[in-house]
Nucleic acid binder design. Sequence first.
DNA 1: ATTACTAGGGAGCGAGTAT
DNA 2: TATACTCGCTCCCTAGTAA
Lengths: 224, 224
Amino acid sequence: MNIRLIRTYLVDLYKLGAGTRYIRSPTNELAMFFGVSQQSASRIINELYKLEYIDKRYVERTLWIRITEKGLSEIEDYIKYINDAYSHPGEFIFEGYVTTGLGEGAYYMSRRGYILQFEKYLGFTPYPGTLNVKLNNPYYISQNRLLRRLSGYHIKGFRTKERVFGDVWAFKAKINDSEDGAVIYAERSIYGFEMLEVIAPIYLRGKLSLSDGDLIKIVVYLNK
Amino acid sequence: MNIRLIRTYLVDLYKLGAGTRYIRSPTNELAMFFGVSQQSASRIINELYKLEYIDKRYVERTLWIRITEKGLSEIEDYIKYINDAYSHPGEFIFEGYVTTGLGEGAYYMSRRGYILQFEKYLGFTPYPGTLNVKLNNPYYISQNRLLRRLSGYHIKGFRTKERVFGDVWAFKAKINDSEDGAVIYAERSIYGFEMLEVIAPIYLRGKLSLSDGDLIKIVVYLNK
DNA sequence: ATTACTAGGGAGCGAGTAT
DNA sequence: TATACTCGCTCCCTAGTAA
């Protein structure tokens, strides 16, 4: 079953009280609550059970169900996403920790082929270096995966005599609610979704007095 | 398209910022965000457009979309429901205004055939009369429609020489956070979903000093 | 009374591709 | 480039009905 449908049915079951204990759930009654037929309610329940989102028991042939831990965390993530969508449309908010990367950012950020495009699309000349932000929270990591799928500004790659420089995508961002900058995604990034690479016109570590391990907030704008 | 799916796609579009203005939305990018193919994203957008949940424009063959008023109110209702489900599982909360009904409640509530069953299932002898609560808020009315689909305690109808008394369904409830009672649904109710009928072991108007037009809060329990 | 199997139809999906 | 058509497949739905 489609994960989008799964989430909505889980929320309905939660509303009925199945998040904290087994509740009596005759399929014809669930059907009316779901807005589907009795047969579909039965099928839905059995699919949720197979996927381990709910547990079920029968008392005198009548169904009693309870949402599992897996189901509860699915619901929580979903509600978090929904509320985040509603309160922060057009933005992705991250919190993470300042980390020392491999130091290759300074090299890339000082390539003229990139600099001209950053100036054109972002409106600033990047300080030669990137600030690496480690995301520890699974929710932020999943949000980063989602954001990565959007394209943002397309900074085209180029080649020199020595080597090939890949494409980069950039989103404008604000760091610690004060400094303008951008989050960049390199075509062939060596980091996974648990890392954000941040650039800015200034030396962020200096301006914001940042050291490794400091908590930092990044707000990424989709439409700026 | 299934309303459950519609809601989730609308929330995704809202997250992208389409709630406040037209946003550039190439279908291949939407597809990645939705987690579907480019073709499906195109189809989804066109269905949402036909159903008037979104408006769309093309700028140099590229899609720009914006959520309509109808779409926004669908999102708002959905988010309200989701948060209500999460913060009040197993409960339906209503607010409405004390109203004078047709006075037939007293007659029904004094029928011995009903009284014995109320005592058995609800644990109290109902005061001979019902308190009618008018729901003005559309959200409460839709919640009442949803609640009505669940069965609650089944108070069986009966017949006397004179006439037939239909089935009634009851849910335990708390009135104004203090008085125990129940909400009842008559099989053939003369009221629509904008009215709640409340019973209690005491004369609620007296105990709570209620007059017509007073705001009253009813919490209905699904599993008590 | 309640669950859930089966069958048939229709909705939703992605690949290929026209424009 | 982009959107969106057709097509075949799968998923999802309900009615009928067995257990």
